[in-house]
């Protein structure tokens, strides 16, 4: 029984998976506005959501056999809330924890599509977090590593890699850059799904379960998110030096 958690984007999700099968999954959006001094974030909703999923499944946390957590890329704050919560939940007992990269997890959610798949998350600063995959006969092949880059560069990459294949873009990057896709790929098959795949936790749990089976555990104490991008201060320092 694997508990999967994803807080990489504005929608948090929690899922319970066993033997690859989804037992239960729930998603909730972070409140737009938090209390005074706190922007709305997953801190308010994540544990109540975990609590709700467990009680709906009539499970207690101690019956879970491993945690799988979405590592990123995504919102820095969201990722830290998810990973820190898992660190707390896993502390003090011998439960395995595995970190799962977010972009492959999003791509894994896709069914009934043949062609390229591109998780496409808004990274602010006029960039997206993205990676390209090919889905053929139900199997997913990774074509690029996780990238942080201008949306144009990603769309170009999809155009070159895909030849005549259609490309499915998924994620909140579409809200900001959907028009770029429409323009660049107008003569090709493409599809955009903004937040129509809101929940990633199920795939996180499934991919996590596969790693648990291979005994590929992470060390919960020292685990960190996959930020993909250095902090602003580090970037500026690099430019100067």
């Amino acid at each position: 029984m694997i508990l999967g958690i994803d807080t990489a984007t504005a929608t948090a999700s929690v899922a319970i998976v066993e033997e690859g099968k989804l037992i239960l999954e729930e998603a909730r959006s972070a409140p737009k506005q938090g209390g005074p001094g706190a922007r709305g974030n997953h801190a308010e909703i994540l544990l109540p959501l975990i609590d709700a999923v467990l009680s709906r499944a009539s499970l207690s946390l101690s019956e879970i056999s491993a945690f799988a957590v979405s590592l990123g890329p995504g919102s820095f704050t969201g990722l830290r809330i998810g990973l820190s919560t898992v660190k707390g939940l896993a502390y003090g007992w011998e439960i395995p924890v595995v970190g799962v990269p977010t972009l492959p997890a999003i791509a894994t959610r896709v069914t009934g599509w043949e062609g390229l798949v591109c998780p496409f998350l808004d990274a602010r600063k006029k960039e997206v977090y993205a990676a390209l995959f090919r889905r053929r006969d139900g199997a997913l092949e990774r074509l690029t590593e996780d990238l942080v880059s201008s949306p144009d560069a990603i769309i170009d990459r999809a155009a070159v890699l895909g030849h005549s294949e259609p490309c499915l873009f998924i994620g909140d990057g579409i809200k900001a850059y959907g028009n770029l896709i429409t323009t660049a790929l107008a003569d090709r098959g493409f599809l955009t799904l903004g937040e129509a795949y809101p929940s990633t936790a199920c795939a996180v749990a499934q991919l996590g379960e596969a790693r648990v089976r291979r005994q590929e555990f992470d060390s919960v104490g020292t685990m960190i998110p996959l930020y993909l991008r250095p902090s602003e201060a580090e970037l500026k320092k690099r430019v100067r030096s």
Binding site: A43, L47, S62, G88, L89
Partner: peptide
């Protein structure tokens, strides 16, 4: 806060 909530919950 997140770590402590996790421990408290578990």
């Amino acid at each position: 806060l997140s770590v402590v909530k996790g421990i408290s919950f578990r």
